[in-house]
Amino acid sequence: MGVHRMTIPRLLLLRALLADPAAERYGLDLALQAGLEPGSVYPILVAFENAGWLESRVEDVDASAAGRPRRRYYRLTAEGVDAGRTALAEAARKRRRTAGGELAW
């Protein structure tokens, strides 16, 4: 599959993830940081995870004690970091070539 499937929401999410590749973030947090609609990020997260770009784990807390459902945390894999940076660079290169400017999300 090529870059043509690397949509703007996917690139935005990648940029948010690459802001701190080692950090673990949950879905809503990522959506807010990426500037995406909350609730719209899960198809992207699952697709990235299927591709091996992300790994996820359920947080180890007592939901009753925390007063909220347990969160699922996502973190970029080494492969995801490389692939994400490549995708962003490719998108930026295309953007400069077609518009002669910076990425304007």
Binding site: G27, L28, P38, G39, Y42, V58, R70, R72
Partner: peptide, 13 residues
């Protein structure tokens, strides 16, 4: 898995 994601987000929202 997804039910927990949505419920968690709604609780936070």
């Amino acid at each position: 898995r997804q039910r927990e994601e949505w419920r968690g987000d709604l609780a936070e929202l």
